[in-house]
């Protein structure tokens, strides 16, 4: 299995532990990642579509040449790309205009044939959770994990969870169970983490972060897992501020999806970069080592 790999900005920037963890885990699963280097940021819904669509069309044109499916490790990259791809696929006139105005000078054109999938979807839809299960050497027994999706992996539903792919609504829960962990459901698992409004409305942002992590904790979770590094920036990076905002201790470790997979496949917490998180991951390391001992 080989994928054109779009790592996104944050896996190398704000969450530098994510990129190596994803690479190590993919390697273990025998998934070949051909990293896209000569491409730009997806725009994350912040850049105007007028400029992010051409930038993303350029990326997709390169992937199309490679003849591969593109893999992301970020809900936001995934959402932005799926939406851009939908516009480019459903409106040939629009696609032609972008090809001519922006890509032709570089000898590129995009014909609208690329498929884009998040690592989480690939695990279930292409790799197969049963196959993943066979590789689990350290089941996450005793670990109570609250799933947190990140908005863009679920919405807009007609694009992100289309007919025939309804399993995407619960794939994170199924993955946790596959790895031997226990799922802790929260009401906010599909809602916004708060990150997008950190600069415009900090109080609301922290309230969201606090609500999600506190609810998980109250329901007995000892960690949360997310396939979105932007959610991680908020839920991990801003958790201390959120605790202050809520006037309560939280201390809930937040795992990146590849980290959780890697731990079950036998990699050490250090290999997975757990020490780089702002919220201490000591408690889950202890739980897992208790199991392993």
């Amino acid at each position: 299995m080989a994928y054109a790999f779009f790592p996104g900005c944050v896996s190398k920037g704000g969450c530098p532990e994510l990129y190596p963890a994803a690479k190590i885990v993919a390697d273990k699963l025998n998934i070949e990642l051909v990293e896209l280097r000569d491409v730009g940021c997806s725009g994350a819904g912040v850049l105007s579509q007028e400029v992010s669509d051409p930038v993303n069309a350029r990326t997709l044109a390169k992937v199309e040449k490679m003849g591969m499916t593109m893999m992301t490790i970020c809900s936001t990259c995934q959402g932005t790309f799926t939406q851009a791809n939908h516009r480019l696929q459903s409106d040939p006139e629009y696609r032609d205009r972008i090809n001519q105005e922006y890509l032709a000078s570089e000898g590129l054109r995009y014909d609208g044939t690329v498929d884009i999938k998040h690592f989480l979807w690939i695990l279930d839809e292409e790799y197969g959770l049963d196959n993943l299960k066979d590789l689990v050497v350290h089941p996450l027994e005793g670990l109570k994990v609250a799933p947190f999706y990140g908005c863009y992996l679920r919405r807009p539903p007609e694009l992100m969870v289309p007919k025939g792919f309804e399993g995407r609504k619960t794939v994170l829960e199924k993955t946790i169970e596959t790895l031997g962990g226990e799922v802790v459901n929260t009401s906010g698992k599909g809602k916004c983490c708060g990150f997008p409004i950190l600069s415009s409305s900090e109080d609301n942002s922290l309230a969201m972060c606090g609500d999600h992590t506190l609810e998980a904790k109250d329901k007995g979770a000892n960690c949360m897992v997310t396939p979105c590094p932007l959610c991680h920036l908020e839920l991990d990076g801003k958790q201390e501020d959120a605790a202050r905002h809520k006037k309560q201790d939280i201390d809930l470790p937040i795992l990146h999806l590849p980290q959780m997979v890697g731990l079950a496949l036998g990699f050490s917490p250090r290999d997975m970069g757990l020490h780089k998180h702002l919220v201490s991951t000591e408690e889950i390391v202890n739980i897992l080592e208790g199991v392993r001992a």
């Binding site: 908005c151 919405r155 809602k191 990150f195 409004i197 415009s200 409305s201």
Partner: peptide, 12 residues
């Protein structure tokens, strides 16, 4: 409008 976190819940 800047308090909107564009989570697409409204559209859903």
């Amino acid at each position: 409008m800047w308090d909107c976190c564009h989570c697409y819940e409204a559209s859903e």
